[in-house]
Computed example of a mutant assay.
Amino acid sequence: MFLTKNNHIYKIPSPKNYRYKAIAELSNQEILYVLIYYSTINRKPSEVLEVSFDRIQLALEGQYEYTNNEMDMHLYNFNNYAYMDAKRLAEKEIIPLPKALITPKDIEKQALYQYIKEKYPVLMKSLPLMIEKHIKKCSCIDQEHRKLVRDALAIKNRVKNI
Rank of each mutant, 00 (worst) to 15 (best):
V149D: 03
A86R: 01
Y33M: 07
N161K: 03
L101R: 12
E30T: 10
K137Y: 04
L60E: 02
Y81T: 05
I155M: 01
Y120G: 04
D72W: 13
I12R: 13
H8D: 00
L60M: 06
V51E: 03
F53V: 10
K99P: 06
I41V: 10
K117A: 14
S126M: 01
V48N: 07
G62M: 07
N69D: 14
L123Y: 07
E65C: 13
K105I: 05
K109T: 01
T103N: 15
M1S: 08
K137N: 07
H145E: 12
A100V: 05
Q63P: 12
K5E: 12
A100I: 03
K44E: 14
K119A: 04
V48S: 10
A111F: 01
K5L: 07
K136V: 04
N42D: 08
I141Q: 11
K136F: 14
E132W: 09
K99F: 12
H8P: 00
V48Y: 08
E30M: 02
V48E: 04
I102C: 13
M130E: 08
I36K: 11
Y10E: 00
I41H: 08
F53N: 14
I131M: 11
I116G: 03
E50V: 01
I116N: 06
Y20Q: 02
K105P: 00
I102M: 14
E50D: 14
K99R: 15
I116T: 10
N17M: 09
K160E: 06
L123N: 08
I41Q: 11
F78D: 08
V149E: 02
V48L: 10
S39M: 07
V159P: 00
Q114I: 03
R43H: 11
K44W: 04
E108Y: 02
S52M: 07
E91S: 01
N157V: 07
K99I: 07
I95S: 04
L101F: 14
R19W: 13
N68M: 14
P104Q: 15
E61M: 01
N6R: 01
K160N: 09
V159F: 09
A111C: 08
L129T: 12
S39W: 06
E61Q: 07
Y18G: 00
I94N: 12
E144Y: 09
A59K: 04
A90M: 09
E47F: 14
T40H: 07
K92D: 06
R43N: 15
D106H: 06
I131L: 05
V51G: 11
